[in-house]
Design a protein around this nucleic acid. Structure first.
Ligand SMILES: NC(=O)c1ccc[n+]([C@@H]2O[C@H](COP(=O)([O-])OP(=O)(O)OC[C@H]3O[C@@H](n4cnc5c(N)ncnc54)[C@H](O)[C@@H]3O)[C@@H](O)[C@H]2O)c1
Ligand SMILES: NC(=O)c1ccc[n+]([C@@H]2O[C@H](COP(=O)([O-])OP(=O)(O)OC[C@H]3O[C@@H](n4cnc5c(N)ncnc54)[C@H](O)[C@@H]3O)[C@@H](O)[C@H]2O)c1
Lengths: 225, 225
DNA sequence: ATCCCTTTGTGAAGCGATGCACAAAGTCGG
DNA sequence: CCGACTTTGTGCATCGCTTCACAAAGGGAT
């Protein structure tokens, strides 16, 4: 039973949260092209979703549209940004500066909006000291100090699988509660810690499953992004 | 036992398909450690899911367990591999050999199981001709020839966002129906083409949302992987 | 002020996924 | 061969998300 707390309904569905960045990206593109207002139909098209779903998603944030007109692009950009917490700056540390870690460090795309790479850490003495994208790679020994001093609140894990849980335990102990994990392991974390994983291998296997099915029978329902 | 009859249950839920690679990874680890059989409880623990869910997932493939005992690890590895289409070899082409494309090409993890990088393609003359992980980077002009001659059925897109849709159109026209997209754009494809996307920026934004909420109010439900 | 047109916001139905709980099916010791 | 024990496979209630469909709300023309 839920109590009828008439206060602010901060219960935004997880599925909605996952789509807000998509809307935001589409809206930013429109703002750049000078579009002032957009209908749910057009925005849904740009984001690749159903328009009713888009309207319901946005309704969770509030009533920011105008009936008969649509949504003000800039205003909506601001509202979604605020809801996602992008109006503040997030310090991110990347642990494991190998092939993938380097690519991430060099990637300008996420630094641009709200996220700032505040630390690169690795265990390999060969790697420590390297300069990558203007940052010096530090030794994993100073992990806790880096997290604390630079206010790191999100850690990206790009170490080999065997090291991931150990590093995870350390960053959690240091107070981090948001982790993006690229290592192919199921991390075990205490309640209150958020782990999201990106797993290339799983994605390929899912594609292979559907590909095999297409080759087999003529009955299929595909696509989804 | 179950005979490979013609009446296979092809209606495996998408959510189940997405978890099979997780089970497979856990099972492979157990097989390496010499574990012969495993209960749904233990396997679920290793994969980080509910045991009832695991049993229901596996029941979609058939009745491969033994009541009172559990599942034979090697047999289950084979069955899941077969279901996912990993008993055959998949030729993968990577288009866009920049920071990310290089990391992917150098990554041994997915080449090991069923997937083989059969081509690296880029538009930049500076990059074309480079040798990466034993493969020569070819010019995007020969995309169609590479796909056709080497039987490429899965394409990994790692080009800048602006080029993604154009390259996508070409690979689809060349007959590819499975695409893994790293570019931050919503690809538009015809029915029957599977697109999966990996979007670092979206993952970070979702983490930021929850992080902000944690800092704000004391009412939260977190974690999920 | 009134009418018409467009588009939002949402009630409600539909659909698939989740997790509990247990009967059925198997093992194993005696 | 039996009876205690273990673990699977699944019926069922529930939950959350999606989609349809439409009343309500606003803008603009006359
Ligand atoms: N490269 C890819 O395309 C790719 C794709 C999918 C998944 N992954 C996964 O991402 C992770 C990184 O992949 P990669 O290709 O960059 O591997 P890599 O071996 O090139 O890099 C790993 C880095 O982590 C460092 N490291 C090892 N132990 C450490 C520790 N305890 N603390 C800090 N740093 C440590 C190593 O020194 C190395 O620099 C792996 O788990 C891999 O499975 C990579
Ligand atoms: N690097 C990351 O960590 C990261 C993370 C998330 C998303 N992404 C996305 O992945 C994509 C690649 O990122 P990156 O950092 O490797 O970029 P990059 O600029 O280093 O590499 C892109 C490569 O694509 C090539 N290219 C451009 N147009 C092409 C075309 N028409 N056909 C073939 N090749 C073409 C370029 O020559 C270049 O080598 C981008 O869309 C980026 O937004 C990258």
């Amino acid at each position: 039973m839920k109590s009828p707390s008439q206060s602010r309904d901060r219960g935004i569905p997880e599925a909605t949260v996952a789509r807000l960045p998509l809307y935001l990206r589409a809206l930013n593109g429109m703002a750049e092209r000078g579009v002032a207002t957009v209908s749910s139909e057009d925005l849904a098209m740009a984001a690749g979703v159903n328009s009713a779903k888009l309207r319901k998603d946005l309704s969770h944030l509030g009533s920011y549209g105008t009936r008969g007109v649509g949504y003000d692009v800039e205003y909506l950009v601001y509202q979604i940004s605020r809801e996602l917490g992008l109006t503040q700056d997030w310090a991110v540390a990347i642990v494991g500066v190998g092939n993938l870690g380097r690519a991430l460090a060099n990637y300008g795309g996420f630094v641009s909006r709200g996220f700032r790479v505040a630390g690169l850490l690795d265990a390999d003495p060969e790697v420590v000291g390297d300069d990558i994208a203007g940052l010096n790679v530090e030794h994993i020994d100073v992990l806790e100090a880096v997290i604390e001093r630079r206010g790191v609140s999100i850690v990206v894990l790009a170490t080999p699988a065997v090291a991931a849980q150990e590093v995870c335990d350390r960053v959690v102990a240091a107070g981090v509660t948001s982790i993006l994990n690229f290592a192919p392991v199921v991390l075990s974390v205490p309640d209150g810690v958020d782990v999201r994983k990106v797993d290339l291998s799983i994605e390929l296997q899912i594609l292979a499953f559907h590909e095999q099915r297409k080759a087999g029978g003529p009955l299929m329902a595909v696509d989804s992004q």
